[in-house]
Computed example of a mutant assay.
Amino acid sequence: MRAVTLGPAGTYSHRAANAVAEEVEFRESVTAIVEAVAVGEYDRGVIPIENSIEGSVTESLDSLSEYDIAVVKEIVTPIRHALLAQGAGFSTVASHSQALAQCRKYLESEHPDATHEAVASTARGVERAREDPSVAAIGHPENAGGDLQVLAEDIQDRTSNATRFLVIAPAGERSAAGGKSTIVVYPNMNYPGLLLELLEAFAEENINLSRVESRPSGDRLGDYLFHIDIEAGMYERRTERAIDRVESIAENGWVRWLGSYDTEHVLY
């Protein structure tokens, strides 16, 4: 099985993808990963969807609504950030924007004069630090080695820092089995109580919602679609009834069920 995730090698996404496939290749953006899986270039893709400190990854949400794919598993893993550099004389800290945000308090306290440089991934920041002694990186401590030293470990603002990744597959592999499901709803309308009606469809079936998030549709200002995660599988009659009601409410737009799946916790 071939999987694709955010590169280069050594990213947290790469570590999550190792739990899915032995052969892992890389892309520089989430959108490129989702597109590659949607057209069948890869069997699986692994994308970050939500962090316990910084919240949802908006590029992932937008890509899931743009391409027709399946969600077949979620992977939850703790995030351990370390400060990596060739020495203490750095003036720039380079990492993914989410990693920089997750270590904001540490950086403000310990390195207030350092410039922050957002790059495509934590591994890309590590590459920058290897190439330039004036650059430090934020990444997993195992990315150190050679000229790169671990200057500080566990620098994330909260010890509970964890990231949720979705494992995606071509749309034909959607399964109704699993303890969670993800749907995207585009009502293509707006009126008082619309969101309440959508949420009541699940409440009346005693289905818990683990996440609800709105994103701009991109069609016009003030027009939104909704990403909804529920703690129920599509194999359940109550889920079918709830989705049927949501589809009737959003009859002017569309409802996309991305799949039902289970959770795997990966420690590293």
Rank of each mutant, 00 (worst) to 15 (best):
A177Q: 15
R237T: 14
L225T: 07
E213F: 02
Y235K: 14
V255P: 07
A232W: 03
Y224T: 00
E236H: 08
E247P: 06
S260R: 04
D223A: 12
E264D: 12
T239G: 01
S181C: 10
T239M: 06
G178V: 00
P170W: 05
T163N: 11
W257K: 01
S210A: 10
A250E: 09
Y191V: 01
E205S: 03
V255G: 09
R256C: 02
G218S: 11
T182R: 11
M234E: 13
N190L: 10
A250R: 12
D229R: 01
L221G: 02
D229P: 02
S217L: 00
A242Y: 12
D229N: 08
R256Q: 08
S248A: 15
V185P: 08
R215H: 10
E197V: 02
G259S: 02
Y186R: 14
G178W: 03
V266G: 07
A250C: 15
Y261P: 06
Y261D: 01
I183L: 15
L195F: 00
F165V: 07
A176E: 15
R241D: 09
M189I: 12
R237N: 15
I183K: 03
E264C: 00
D223T: 09
I207D: 04
G253F: 08
S248I: 07
I228W: 08
L196K: 10
F165W: 14
S248R: 15
E205D: 03
N206V: 06
E251S: 15
I168P: 05
Y191N: 00
A201S: 13
G259K: 04
M189E: 15
R164A: 09
N190G: 05
T163K: 07
N252D: 09
I243P: 04
M189T: 14
A177F: 13
L196R: 11
T263A: 12
L267Y: 14
E231S: 05
I230S: 01
S210D: 14
A177V: 13
T163F: 06
R245D: 05
A250G: 13
D262G: 14
I243H: 02
T182F: 11
V212Q: 11
E213I: 10
Y235R: 14
L209H: 01
R215A: 10
E205A: 04
E231H: 06
F202R: 06
L199P: 01
Y224D: 05
S181M: 13
G193Y: 09
R238C: 05
V212M: 12
